[in-house]
Computed example of a mutant assay.
Amino acid sequence: TLSAYDAGLFTWKDWAQTLGTELATDAPGAPCKPYYEHWLTAFEKLLAAKGLTSLADLGRLQDAWDKAARATPHGKPITLKS
């Protein structure tokens, strides 16, 4: 997030608003999602809102990463095929 901000991809106000909105999605009285999950979702939504990627592309990348991680022996580097 900081690297993307430092690169000028969004303002700190954009980040704070997006993260705040995401944190507010927990329903009152319901178990809260871990902070990291909110942070990651907010970051993904902000990148998509800025037109830097799409949520669909991020989903495909997540699926590819999961598949590569499961196929990689423990202790070996995980690589994604293009």
Score class of each variant (00 low, 15 high):
residue 1 T to H: 10
residue 1 T to K: 10
residue 1 T to F: 13
residue 2 L to A: 11
residue 2 L to C: 01
residue 3 S to C: 04
residue 4 A to H: 10
residue 4 A to F: 02
residue 4 A to W: 10
residue 5 Y to V: 06
residue 6 D to V: 04
residue 7 A to Q: 08
residue 7 A to G: 07
residue 7 A to W: 02
residue 7 A to F: 00
residue 8 G to H: 04
residue 8 G to V: 02
residue 11 T to H: 04
residue 14 D to Q: 10
residue 14 D to Y: 11
residue 15 W to P: 09
residue 16 A to N: 09
residue 16 A to Q: 08
residue 17 Q to Y: 00
residue 17 Q to R: 13
residue 17 Q to A: 10
residue 18 T to M: 08
residue 19 L to P: 02
residue 19 L to M: 08
residue 19 L to D: 00
residue 20 G to E: 08
residue 20 G to V: 00
residue 21 T to Q: 12
residue 22 E to H: 03
residue 28 P to V: 13
residue 29 G to K: 06
residue 29 G to D: 06
residue 30 A to S: 13
residue 32 C to Y: 01
residue 32 C to E: 10
residue 34 P to M: 03
residue 36 Y to N: 13
residue 36 Y to V: 15
residue 38 H to L: 06
residue 39 W to M: 14
residue 41 T to Q: 14
residue 43 F to T: 07
residue 44 E to I: 00
residue 45 K to P: 00
residue 45 K to S: 09
residue 46 L to G: 01
residue 46 L to T: 09
residue 47 L to F: 05
residue 47 L to W: 00
residue 47 L to D: 00
residue 48 A to Y: 06
residue 48 A to F: 01
residue 49 A to P: 10
residue 50 K to W: 05
residue 50 K to V: 07
residue 51 G to N: 04
residue 52 L to E: 01
residue 54 S to D: 02
residue 57 D to G: 02
residue 57 D to A: 14
residue 60 R to A: 14
residue 60 R to S: 12
residue 61 L to F: 08
residue 62 Q to S: 15
residue 62 Q to N: 13
residue 62 Q to F: 05
residue 64 A to T: 10
residue 65 W to K: 12
residue 65 W to Y: 13
residue 68 A to T: 07
residue 69 A to L: 09
residue 70 R to A: 15
residue 70 R to H: 08
residue 71 A to C: 09
residue 71 A to D: 07
residue 72 T to E: 06
residue 72 T to C: 08
residue 73 P to E: 12
residue 73 P to W: 03
residue 75 G to N: 09
residue 76 K to W: 06
residue 77 P to E: 05
residue 77 P to R: 02
residue 77 P to N: 02
residue 78 I to Q: 03
residue 78 I to N: 03
residue 78 I to W: 03
residue 79 T to M: 13
residue 79 T to W: 05
residue 79 T to G: 03
residue 80 L to D: 05
residue 82 S to G: 11
